[in-house]
Amino acid sequence: MFRRERSIPLRGSAAALCNNLSVLQLPACSLTHFGVVHGPSAQLLSAVPEGVPLAQRQLHAKEGPGVSPPLITQVHWCVLPFRVLLVLTSHRGIQMYESDGSVMVYWHALDAGDASLVQAVFARGIAASGHFICVGTWSGRVLVFDIPAKGPNIVLNEELAGHRTPVTDIATEPAQEQEPTGEKGKGSSCLSPQDCVADMVTADDSGLLCVWRSGPEFKLLTRIPGFGVPCPSVQLWQGTIAAGYGNGQVRLYEASTGTLRVQIDAHARAICALDLAPEVGKLLSAAEDTFVHIWKLNRSQEGGYVEVEHCHGECVPDTQVCGARFCDPSGSSFAVTGYDLAEILRFSSM
């Protein structure tokens, strides 16, 4: 069970964007950083465990060609093996900052050359994989940036072509060194167990999922077809993909094969955010129906099947939830944002 804690006030409110909350916990400093997007700016807040805000900072999207200020689409902290960067995406480009947002270390402008006159240009979907940062785009391509141990010498390493519609979200986890089980999914190109190590998944507006093996060169392992609704949010845990869809369903797939393991009719409206507590296998789902649910995932010893148990449900009355994240890897607390809500709601286990 969870109880409501002291909320954190925002200077503005949260925009109606999926995955509109990023959380970075700093246990050594007893601090938690929160990032929320509203229009052309992102608000960064630091708070102690009791919820008292200590510092706030506003970041704005870098201006590019055009008469109107660019709108920010997502803000996300990327934890790399040797540094932490704050990544901000917009309709003009991709900005990377030091973790506190004080110094911009890289700016990548989006090339609108392939876009039609009526097609929106933007970046969306951010994740770290090893020493790479991956960012999705409106064209369906995923940009892979090689990040140095320090300094601004960031390089666009490659572009991954797996989607035909705009990327919505990207999830990664450290590579699981085990031989996959089950039959190969549609489109699988694994040649050996090592080739089948799936440690990144990308989703798009059509509901298609692409499963990748990261490395100096990323390799597409398999495609999991959509079924007519978008997939706004994905997570990856111990070789299991958790995907949240626009019809309120959460589906769990085997990452290495694309096999559907579990289907949950979790929400009455579109899911806007998923998150995972990796230490305990808790899955958080949040949707436009005002509900946040927490599920416990367990992998069975025989056959690698996934068992799911519902642990908690929380209603945020009269609020279109647009972001939700665990605040620690054990899943003992979580935070929620809502459209036009001028505060971050916090909940902790009793």
Rank of each mutant, 00 (worst) to 15 (best):
Gly101Lys: 01
Arg11Leu: 10
Thr319Val: 14
Gly239Lys: 01
Ser99Asn: 03
Pro230Ser: 08
Ala324His: 12
Pro180Phe: 12
Trp295Gly: 00
Gly151Phe: 15
Gly185Thr: 13
Leu86Cys: 13
Asn19Thr: 11
Leu191Pro: 00
Thr165Tyr: 01
Thr319Ile: 09
Thr337Arg: 05
Gly331Cys: 12
Phe227Asn: 11
Leu54His: 01
Asp199Glu: 02
Arg92Ala: 12
Ile133Gly: 03
Leu284Cys: 10
Arg164Lys: 13
Gln301Asn: 11
Glu177Leu: 11
Arg213Leu: 08
Val135Pro: 06
Asp114Pro: 00
Ser233His: 11
Ser68Tyr: 10
Val234Tyr: 08
Leu260Thr: 07
Tyr245Cys: 05
Ile224Gln: 00
Trp237Ile: 01
Pro49Val: 01
Tyr106Asp: 03
Ile264Val: 13
Leu117Gly: 09
Cys315Gln: 15
Gly136His: 06
Ile271His: 10
His131Gly: 08
Gln95Val: 01
Ala15Ile: 06
Pro174Lys: 03
Ala149Phe: 09
Asn20Asp: 09
Asp340Val: 10
Trp138Lys: 04
Val121Leu: 02
Val229Glu: 14
Glu173Arg: 08
Val48Pro: 00
Gly248Leu: 07
Val23Tyr: 02
Ile94Met: 05
Leu160His: 06
Lys186Met: 07
Gly338Leu: 04
Tyr97Met: 08
Thr73Val: 05
Leu110Trp: 00
Phe2Ala: 04
Glu254Met: 02
Val316Met: 03
Phe334Met: 13
Leu274Thr: 04
His163Gln: 15
Asn19Val: 04
Pro166Asn: 06
Ala287Leu: 05
Ser285His: 06
Glu63Leu: 14
Ser300Cys: 11
His163Ile: 09
His293Met: 12
Gly303Ala: 04
Thr73Tyr: 01
Met104Phe: 05
His267Gln: 13
Gln176Asp: 08
Leu345Arg: 10
Ala16Ile: 14
Asn20Thr: 10
Val103Tyr: 14
Gly304Val: 07
Val144Leu: 06
Arg269Ala: 15
Ala287Trp: 07
Ala203Pro: 01
Phe132Gln: 06
Trp107Cys: 12
Val262Asp: 04
Leu236Phe: 04
Glu63Cys: 12
Leu341Val: 15
Ile147Val: 15
Leu341His: 00
Leu85Cys: 13
Val144Gly: 14
Val79Ala: 05
Ala16Lys: 15
Gly12Ser: 02
Asp318Asn: 11
Leu284Asn: 06
Gly331Val: 05
Pro81Gln: 10
Pro27Met: 06
Thr137Lys: 08
Trp237Gln: 05
Arg124Thr: 05
Gly215Tyr: 03
Gly182Gln: 10
Gly248His: 03
Thr168Ile: 03
Val306Trp: 01
Leu31Arg: 09
His131Arg: 04
Phe2Val: 07
Arg223Ser: 13
Leu45Pro: 02
Leu117Glu: 06
Thr319Tyr: 09
Tyr305Asp: 12
Gln301Gly: 14
Ala273Gly: 11
Leu143Pro: 02
Val292Pro: 12
Gly64Asn: 09
Cys78Met: 08
Ser129Asp: 03
Met350Cys: 09
Val316Glu: 03
Gln235Glu: 13
Thr290Tyr: 01
Lys150Arg: 14
Val308Thr: 15
Phe218Trp: 14
Leu221Val: 07
Ser13Tyr: 09
Asp328Ser: 15
Phe132Ala: 10
Phe145Lys: 11
Ser22Glu: 05
His293Phe: 12
Trp237Asp: 02
Leu276Glu: 00
Ala14Glu: 03
Arg141Tyr: 11
Gly303Arg: 09
